[in-house]
Design a protein around this nucleic acid. Structure first.
Lengths: 185, 185
DNA sequence: CGGCTCATGTAAAGAGTTACATGATTTG
DNA sequence: CAAATCATGTAACTCTTTACATGAGCCG
C-alpha cells in the first residue's frame, strides 16, 4: 500500500511522468525510504489515474505523460500521513546482515565490517553533495525536504560512528597481539 | 531471499522451533532488521530441511520440532554474509512518511512529528532495557549480538536527536509569534 | 544512421500478508 | 474443565522482482 502514497507524495512536490518518478526512487528514495521499479510504477499510476487521485496534465514526446495530484489525491495523501500508527515493520537487508555477523568468527567478520564502513562513508559523501544544494537562507521558512535530507545524513553518520566503534572493539579482541589495525581513511 | 538467511542465522545462535523463531521476529527483529509471520516461516523451514541446510534435532509436545543448522547450512550462511554488496534497497514506511511530511503545512505536520518523537523515545527505552542484560564483562571477548544491539540503540538515538532538532526548527517557523513550544519531555 | 537514452508497457515467478483452520498442552 | 497459549499448517490475495518487449527521439 505504501507505493501508492509514495507516488502521491512525489507528485505533490511537482507534476512528473512515470519515468521521472522511477528515477527519483532509483537515485535517492531507495537508499533510505522506499523502492519500486518502473514495472510497478506504471501500472500503479494507471490505477491512481483511474481513481481520479492523479490526472494527466501534459503529454510529450515518446508517449510521455506528466501526472499531477488532484484535490482528491491530496486529501488521500493527507489522511494517510495523519491517520497512521508510528510502528511499522522494517525490512533492511543491510541491518539483517549486521545482525547475523555474530554467527561468524571475528577474523571472517572484520573485513565485512570494514567494507560496510567504506560503503557508508561513500553514501554519506554522496548524500551530502546532493543535499548541500538544498540549503535554506536564514529567515526563510524551513522546508521539509531539508528535514528528510537531514534525517538521511544523520542515519548514515550514526552508522559510520557505530562501524568505527565496532571495529575498534573487535580490533582489540582480535589482535590483542597483532600489529595496530590498518586504518583505511 | 533474505528470510532464508535470517532463519539460518537465528538457528546458528541456537536450535529453535518455528514457533520460537516467529517470536524472535515479532519481539525484536521486526523493529529494525526484518520481519516475517509464521505463515511464511513454517513453509520456509520445511524447504530448508528438505535441502538439508537445517535438521530436526528434537520433537516435543504438540508437534513441536526443534531445528538446528547443519554444516551445509552454516556454509550457506557464511557465503551469504561474505559474498554480497553492501547496498540493498531499504523499505521503511516510517521514513517514507517522514519524507512525505514535506507535502503538509507545518500546522498539520507538527503533531505528527511530536508523535514520532514520543514513539522513538519509547522504542529506545524498550531496546535499552532489553539489551542492558547483554552487558559484556571487561576483558571478555566482544560479542556480535552486543554490536547489533548497539547499532539499534544508535539508530533510535539519531532519530530522537533529529526529531528534537526538527521540532525546534519548525517551532521557530510556525510560531515566530506564538507562545513557546509546549515541550513534552 | 547507429547507438544511447527516453518512455511505456506486460507476464511470470517469487515474496509477503491476511484469513482460515486445527488441535494439543498447560494453567488457574 | 475452561481459557490461554503453544504449535503448526494452507489458501487466496497482494506486492515486488525479473525478464521480455517495443518504439520514439536525440546526439554525434
Amino acid at each position: 500500500m505504501s507505493l501508492r502514497y509514495a507516488l502521491l507524495g512525489l507528485l505533490a512536490d511537482q507534476p512528473q511522468s512515470g519515468y521521472d518518478l522511477t528515477q527519483r526512487f532509483e537515485l535517492s528514495l531507495k537508499r533510505y525510504a522506499w523502492h519500486a521499479g518502473h514495472s510497478q510504477i506504471y501500472p500503479e499510476l494507471n490505477k491512481l489515474a483511474a481513481s481520479d487521485l492523479i490526472t494527466v496534465v501534459a503529454e510529450g514526446a515518446r508517449g510521455r505523460r506528466t501526472y499531477a495530484l488532484t484535490d482528491a489525491g491530496r486529501q488521500e495523501l493527507r489522511e494517510w500521513l495523519t491517520d497512521r500508527p508510528s510502528a511499522q515493520p522494517v525490512r533492511n537487508e543491510f541491518v539483517l546482515r549486521l545482525f547475523l555477523l555474530s554467527t561468524l568468527d571475528p577474523p571472517e567478520a572484520l573485513p565485512i565490517l570494514r567494507a560496510m564502513l567504506l560503503h557508508a562513508r561513500q553514501e554519506l559523501t554522496e548524500l551530502r553533495s546532493r543535499s548541500g544544494n538544498i540549503d535554506v537562507a536564514p529567515g526563510e521558512p524551513m522546508e521539509f525536504g531539508r528535514l528528510a535530507a537531514e534525517y538521511g545524513l544523520r542515519q548514515y553518520q550514526a552508522m559510520i560512528d557505530w562501524a568505527e566503534w565496532a571495529l575498534t572493539k573487535l580490533g582489540q579482541d582480535a589482535s590483542e597481539h597483532r600489529h595496530p589495525d590498518t586504518d583505511e581513511k
